[in-house]
């Protein structure tokens, strides 16, 4: 109790001091280091990296005798093309992880961002430092976005590696039936990874908002992941088609449109716009909540 009392005037005194921009980078760096050094984060990334390995080995065993995949289009998107070109494993892995694994990992990290600190009793110390709540929130969001990107790149890189080891590479056939060079295919894979990472920014903002509502990290993570599952289910119910275009996961698979020739931009643009909207709405909601909240832990 006495520590808290002592901290109050300290915080009040610190306010007039305007921290320089360098300080923000320091805060961001320390946040990034803290996040990516956690065992929890590393374990999540490990699970994500294992998905393409499993998919790759399964497809390899299934088609090992040289016969084409006879299942006729079941399973995740692009899975039947993996045997032609290992690069397709990148797209399959992203299509397989995007509906659940990736956003779940984001939900864990985003949900933990504020609530985890509050639960561990470290949030007040962060606020004692001359950061300001808005700045701290932005740093947390930036860290979560960085995790989105790293998580996506981990899946893509692992898939690329497994694809190169197990399957042939070379010119690839787009889903429109035209051929593009392997270099262009790599470029599109990179672009797709970026789009997938951007697709997760909406969930990240939602998780951050939930995280400002509670003092328990576990509760925030569970709520975020629960919301994610709910939205995914709602997106499958045909009777709800009127609201589905506004669900954050509705256009997630639009990244596949980058593999058409010419690229079909409509849904991609809608997806990015929707993610921006979710980020704006829940980002500002998190700000409204966090900057006026009583922080007692």
């Amino acid at each position: 109790m006495s520590r808290v009392e002592a901290a109050v005037p300290a915080g009040a005194v610190d306010v007039p001091r305007r921290p320089g921009p360098l300080w923000t980078f320091g805060l961001l760096r320390s946040e990034l280091v803290t996040t990516f050094r956690r065992w929890r984060t590393l374990a999540l990334l490990g699970v994500l990296a294992a998905v393409p390995v499993l998919v790759g080995i399964a497809v390899r065993i299934e088609t090992g005798d040289g016969s084409p995949d006879g299942r006729g289009g079941g399973g995740p998107a692009f899975i039947s093309q993996i045997t032609n070109n290992g690069l397709f494993l990148v797209f399959t892995a992203l299509a397989a992880t995007l509906p659940f694994f990736l956003p779940m990992a984001i939900g864990v990290v985003a949900g933990d961002a504020i609530a985890g600190e509050a639960g561990a009793g470290t949030l007040r110390y962060l606020l004692v430092a001359p950061a300001g709540r808005t700045r701290l929130l932005l740093t947390k969001y930036a860290t979560t976005i960085a995790f989105c990107l790293v998580a996506t790149l981990v899946v893509a890189a692992s898939a690329m590696l497994v694809g190169a080891l197990l399957f042939p590479l070379g010119d690839l056939t787009t889903i429109s039936g035209t051929r593009i060079t392997f270099a262009e295919g790599l470029g599109r894979a990179a672009l797709i990874a970026l789009v997938v990472a951007a697709s997760l920014t909406g969930v990240a903002a939602l998780g951050l908002f939930v995280s400002t509502l509670t003092g328990s990290g576990i509760a925030a993570m569970a709520t975020t992941v629960g919301l994610l599952i709910t939205v995914q289910i709602l997106d499958q119910i045909p009777q709800l088609h009127a609201i589905q275009p506004y669900l954050f996961s509705h256009y997630w698979l639009s990244f596949a449109d980058l593999l058409r020739e010419p690229v079909y931009w409509d849904d991609l643009v809608r997806n990015l716009g929707l993610q921006g909207l979710y980020a704006a709405v829940f980002g500002t909601a998190a700000w409204a909540r966090f900057t006026t909240k009583d922080i007692s832990t």
């Binding site: 808290v4 915080g11 009040a12 606020l127 900057t291 009583d294 007692s296």
Partner: peptide, 15 residues
Amino acid sequence: MAPYESDDSTTGVTG
């Protein structure tokens, strides 16, 4: 426990 003011609050009074 006294509520913790946000950083841009100028009130230092507790009670």
